[in-house]
């Protein structure tokens, strides 16, 4: 009866072998019938499996290590975030404008003021603060890791030949590829967001630190040696100061790349402007995405101009022969207090 009711009854026993064949994967088949003319029909090296195993093994055995890495990152991040969130927007805007005036001039101070006010007006203030703390945390850690590495590979060609391919990989690997492993290792939230950002934003700082130090003119190195500089003196009195504009450019690049990662990072539950964009796209809420996008752009422009000015500042100071405390708002304060003292 059962067989009669089922027109495909006779075929039923044939199904399991079929399934087996599917489960067994194409590998076994390809290995049996290896074709020299078309050797790449199947995967001969199961790289994907290896990565998976390695990752699983790392997660199982070294979870403690990654949790330990979380601690300083988390600490810095929450410190910055609490700090930024605690400052009243008005105070923050005024402080940033004054800072911009101090390091760059009145024009940038005005630009900073307007940009921040716009961000506030479109309702992205608190998200911006989250993003800012994220970006600053990643820049801090990039500097902690990147400067010594950059100095190291500037001094050792062997180190350079090892590190540089890694930097290439860090810059070219699509963020999606390491997004998931990072989540597996660190969990979700802001910390893996910072880690992902560091991976992407670190290389230019290392490269430019390396470049800056290697570009220090040979005769300056010779001078330092001929006057009896020890390697440390050479580094801190000659190489780093001469390389400083290039290193500042590296920090500027790191900052910019960190900002550009906020949307990616938001995919692993990182808050802030990135999440506004992501949520906007997800709900087809173009308005929300545009608010987030505008916030990112304005923040990027402000931060970029300020760090660039920081790099140029020293040169300008040389030319004008003005001490930093005699310029900008602090200069104003300085002259006022001096005048008072004179009276």
């Amino acid at each position: 009866m059962a067989t009669a009711a089922n027109p495909w009854g006779t075929q039923a026993p044939a199904t399991p072998p079929n399934n087996d064949w599917l489960i067994n994967d194409s590998n076994s088949k390809v290995l049996h019938h290896f074709d020299w003319l078309n050797p790449f029909d199947g995967t001969l090296v199961p790289f994907d499996k290896w990565v998976e195993h390695a990752l699983n093994w790392t997660v199982e055995n070294f979870r403690g290590v990654f949790q330990a890495i979380r601690v300083p990152v988390d600490g810095t991040l929450s410190l910055l975030e609490n700090f930024f969130q605690a400052i009243p927007p008005t105070v923050f805007i005024v402080l940033m404008a004054l800072l911009a005036w101090q390091i760059a001039g009145k024009k940038l101070a005005f630009g900073t003021f307007v940009s921040l006010v716009i961000i506030g007006l479109i309702g992205a203030w608190s998200e911006m603060m989250v993003t800012l703390s994220l970006v600053f945390t990643s820049v801090i850690f990039c500097m902690i890791i990147g400067l010594p590495l950059g100095i190291w590979i500037a001094r050792s060609d062997r180190a350079s030949s090892i590190i540089r391919p890694i930097l290439d990989a860090m810059q070219t690997t699509p963020a999606f590829v390491y997004l998931v492993p990072v989540v597996m290792l660190f969990g979700i939230g802001n910390v893996p967001g910072v880690v992902v950002t560091i991976i992407f934003a670190l290389p230019p700082l290392i490269r430019l630190t390396n470049l800056g130090i290697r570009q220090v003119p040979e005769d300056l190195i010779e001078v330092s040696q001929s006057f009896g500089a020890s390697p440390w003196q050479m580094l801190f009195r000659v190489q780093l100061p001469v390389a400083m504009p290039t290193i500042m450019a590296g920090i500027n690049q790191t900052l910019m790349l960190s900002l550009s990662m906020v949307v990616f990072a938001s995919m692993i539950a990182v808050g802030g402007l990135g999440q506004m964009v992501l949520r906007g796209i997800g709900r087809l809420d173009m308005g929300l995405a545009a608010v987030g996008g505008l916030g990112i752009v304005l923040l990027a422009v402000v931060l970029d101009r300020m760090t660039q000015a920081l790099g140029l500042r020293e040169k300008v100071m040389h030319r004008q022969r003005i001490k930093w405390y005699k310029k900008g708002p602090i200069g104003l304060l300085y002259t006022i207090t001096c005048q008072k003292e004179k009276k």
Binding site: P217, V238, P241, V242
Partner: peptide, 9 residues
Amino acid sequence: FQSFALMPH
């Protein structure tokens, strides 16, 4: 030195 080689900073 021939190139003077003064520290620019």
